[in-house]
């Protein structure tokens, strides 16, 4: 692909796909928030929402962009990492870490954690929903709610989920700002605003995504 010949073009692809994923995460979180409703309401609302998402052509296009983004983001990251390995220097004694944040230097590792999480996540929910035999709820929608809540009732699953969300948080903390820079937002004032927005965004998503499984897990004992 000639347009990916430049280091800057490859970073652009990372930035664009990354920002799209950031946008998608917001939609995803909004959907997940329904799990915080009372059980009977949550079930109806969540399953309706799932059905809505799977039926709509517009949503389907978005879904394909999403699949593409995830794959392109990962593959591009792999290409960049391999190339950087070739150019990067090795020092016998290295204390360069003092000059930058650890998560900014370890986006690849954080990304790999997220990729593994995504595989689990897709297998448990997306694959089951798309191709598995699911019970129907009283409205005739596939009952994804049951699957999700069951999963969140086991402590180890919640642990994996929460750890992964922290990985996501650090990934976003650097990724959002980095993406905006890559695309070229250079105005000092607006760059600052966007940076603050990125931090708020990252915290909100991390806390939001982490809180839901923990809440679901705890509430099973409170009832």
């Amino acid at each position: 692909m000639p347009f990916l010949k430049s280091t800057l073009s490859r970073k652009n692809l990372m930035a664009l796909t990354g920002l799209f994923l950031c946008f998608f995460l917001v939609i995803h979180l909004l959907g997940n928030l329904q799990l915080l409703l009372a059980a009977d309401k949550a079930s109806v609302s969540f399953n309706n929402y799932s059905t809505l998402l799977s039926g709509n052509i517009f949503i389907k296009i978005i879904a394909y962009i999403l699949y593409f983004s995830i794959i392109a983001h990962a593959v591009d990251a792999l290409v960049i990492t391999v190339k950087n390995r070739k150019t990067a220097a090795k020092y016998a004694y290295d204390e360069r870490k003092h000059a930058s944040k650890w998560y900014s230097r370890n986006m690849g590792i954080l990304g790999t954690v997220l990729l593994i999480f995504l595989v689990i996540h897709f297998k448990d929910f997306w694959y089951v929903y798309k191709f598995g035999a699911l019970p129907l709820d009283k409205n005739g929608n596939k009952n994804l709610y049951v699957i999700v809540v069951n999963a969140f009732h086991s402590w180890w699953y919640v642990c994996i989920y929460v750890v992964s969300m922290f990985a996501l948080g650090f990934h976003l903390l650097h990724g959002f700002k980095s993406a905006v820079r890559t695309l070229g937002l250079y105005h000092p004032r607006y760059a600052r605003y966007v940076e603050i927005f990125g931090v708020v965004y990252s915290y909100t998503l991390t806390i939001g995504f982490s809180f839901i499984p923990v809440y679901v897990y705890i509430t099973q004992y409170i009832k």
């Binding site: 280091t7 150019t87 990067a88 944040k101 980095s178």
Partner: peptide
Amino acid sequence: GHCSNTEA
């Protein structure tokens, strides 16, 4: 190499 915006 590529710029990772680590700001180091």
